[in-house]
């Protein structure tokens, strides 16, 4: 994987440009914050509603700099043995059995040394350990940190401040290079001050019309500029003017854009028409109450006309 940009010659502007080349449209605020996180070697904590492109930052950074992406998906009950390391018990047990079978009855054979069983060969690396032991600086994406419990979070921010771990049987392992760390949170739970303090903070909001249009153009090949703009305006209007249970995320916008682009290409229309919009609404709004809310708002109007109107 060839890097689009070298870490050394990264500036806020070149970073934004490289990210755009990798398919991620980044506003100046985000670009500067990400740039600072890279330069200061601090973890970056990204918060925002679901589907505004938080996780994507980690993925794009790995693409831009050509680095390995190590991802830790958080969930409730996640513990060290899933996130950091675990011993391979099956293998250890097998080894014990083999040693027993081999041993001659009555011979002064020394017992199996314990260190043998707790050597790196029996160690299962989990994402965090992998990030620490990586040969090359990796991008460590810790996704949805708010899903874990407070204890794990405390453990994590210790790790993030020192980038070293102690494994009782092996000793202390120190990171070869400090990984680029991106943490994301949906704000389901209040994160501890300690964690916030250690990170640079970035709040991502739903994109504005222009940014979303650029995202559509970057992500949906072959879509017409007019259609992309129309979709961006429609989605923006739906997000801001309707009281929805679930606002459409960027991913849904993109799905919708792909669907409409396909329909438009089939019918050789430059823009969306009311029939297509109506038929594909379920891609954008994924529950009945929200769809009804939009239909109510439309009052029989077609979606394109509604977007056009004031």
């Amino acid at each position: 994987m060839d890097p689009l940009l070298k870490l050394e010659d990264c500036t806020p502007d070149s970073l934004a440009a490289a990210m755009e080349k990798a398919g991620y449209i980044c506003d100046p605020v985000a670009a500067l914050t990400i740039y600072l996180a890279l330069r200061l070697e601090r973890p970056l904590l990204v918060e925002g509603a679901a589907g505004v492109g938080k996780t994507e930052i980690g993925k794009v950074l790995s693409r831009v700099f050509g680095l390995e992406l190590i991802r830790l998906q958080c969930y409730e009950g996640l513990d060290e043995s899933r996130a950091l390391y675990e011993w391979n018990y099956q293998r250890q047990l097998l080894r014990i059995q083999m040693e027993q079978a081999r041993r001659q009855p009555g011979s002064p054979d020394p017992a199996l040394p314990e260190e043998d069983l707790f050597s790196p060969a029996y160690l299962l690396e989990r994402p965090l350990l992998r990030a620490i032991r990586a040969q090359q600086r990796p991008v460590l994406l810790i996704d949805e940190i708010d899903k874990t419990d407070a204890e794990f979070e405390a453990f994590l921010f210790e790790l993030l401040s020192d980038f070293q771990v102690s494994i009782p049987e092996l000793g202390t392992l120190r990171a070869r290079q400090i990984p680029i760390v991106v943490l994301t949170s949906n704000g389901e739970r209040e994160l501890s001050d300690g964690l916030r303090r250690r990170c640079l903070y970035l709040y991502l909001d739903y994109p504005d019309v222009d940014k979303e249009r650029r995202i559509i153009l970057a992500q949906v090949p072959g879509i017409s500029t007019a259609l992309a703009g129309q979709i961006a305006r429609a989605v923006h209007k739906i997000r801001t003017e309707l009281d929805l249970e679930k606002k459409p995320a960027i991913a849904e916008t993109l799905d919708w854009a792909r669907a409409l682009a396909l329909l438009c290409a089939d019918t050789a229309l430059p823009e969306m028409n009311a029939v297509h919009a109506e038929a594909t609404l379920n891609i954008l709004l994924k529950n009945k109450a929200d769809q009804d809310a939009l239909r109510h708002q439309l009052r029989g109007q077609g979606l394109p006309e509604w977007v056009q109107g004031a």
């Binding site: 100046p28 500067l32 600072l36 330069r39 200061l40 904590l45 918060e47 916030r196 640079l200 903070y201």
Partner: peptide, 27 residues
């Protein structure tokens, strides 16, 4: 402080964003 070293101090916006990203943790 180390963040401010990295950005253009003459640019009011960059200074503002740097301080915000480093000192403020809640929207």
């Amino acid at each position: 402080l180390s963040g401010l070293v990295e950005v253009d101090l003459l640019d009011w916006r960059e200074v503002y964003l740097t301080l915000r990203a480093t000192l403020v943790h809640r929207p």
